[in-house]
């Protein structure tokens, strides 16, 4: 990039490049996932197996309220960690980090694309596991649609923090260890807010909507905070 004289148009061009790069990386990631199927099927399988584990661990065949919300949320969070572990493996092994450093685009484009890919994975995971969960444990399916909305908000927060932690861990020696270690405490507020929002929706006597507004608010605040933090710091994870 040349001197300060043409900084204005230059920045505009850079942003255009970044948007283009964002789309290209996201499309690449989704295409790779479609061809290799290395993350989503494993996550879904993990989710279903975890439900079976909970069925025997809790010795319950029907769940409702707080217990149902906890089982669902814990399963989704742990399944997400499988994908977050793998998010940057290809970039590191195949030189994607170097390529993005050489290209005239913001590193944020890479982070944003990875976060978007992670959200897509999580939505597919929930599209599979939520009906299975309802089939296994719920009497009524009425609360599922609003629960899916709560999960979507949780997914955004998961993706925002997950990408940061995954990018840090990808360049470390103890990748598989570091992701759950650092990510789980960071996700506790997501767990608190999403579980509390989902609890009345999964109540035994049918979904109730009272009091979930403030929890949705907390989730939205969490999402926005970590999206902002991600934008501010992501570039520094790519410098070398």
């Amino acid at each position: 990039m040349s001197g300060g004289r043409d900084r204005g148009p230059d920045r505009g061009r850079r942003r255009g490049h970044s948007l283009h790069a964002f789309r290209a990386i996201l499309a690449k990631d989704l295409r790779v996932e479609l061809r290799t199927l290395q993350s989503v099927p494993a996550m879904a399988l993990f989710g279903v197996t975890t439900f079976v584990l909970f069925r025997y661990g809790l010795d319950r065949t029907k769940l409702s309220g707080g217990l149902a919300a906890g089982v669902l949320l814990a399963t989704v969070l742990f399944a997400a960690i499988l994908a977050i572990n793998r998010l940057f493996v290809a970039e590191r092994d195949e030189g994607g980090f170097d390529a993005i450093r050489l290209a005239p685009v913001d590193g944020t484009a890479l982070g944003g694309a990875k976060a978007a890919a992670l959200i897509v994975y999580l939505v597919v995971l929930e599209a599979i596991t939520l009906p299975v969960f309802a089939l296994f444990f719920l009497d009524s399916w009425a609360g599922l649609a609003p629960v899916a909305g709560v999960l979507a908000l949780a997914d955004v927060g998961l993706a925002a923090t997950g990408v940061l932690v995954s990018a840090i861990a990808a360049n470390s020696r103890a990748r598989d260890l570091l992701v759950p270690l650092v990510l789980l405490p960071l996700l506790i507020p997501v767990m608190i807010a999403a579980a509390n929002a989902a609890e009345p929706l999964l109540a035994a006597q049918g979904p109730a909507y009272g009091g979930i507004g403030k929890w949705v608010g907390v989730l939205a605040l969490y999402d926005m905070t970590f999206i902002a933090v991600g934008f501010a710091v992501y570039d520094f994870l790519l410098e070398d």
Partner: peptide, 12 residues
Amino acid sequence: RYASVFAITAGA
């Protein structure tokens, strides 16, 4: 650098 990113994220 990564420790700083962590410290900022955790601070938020």
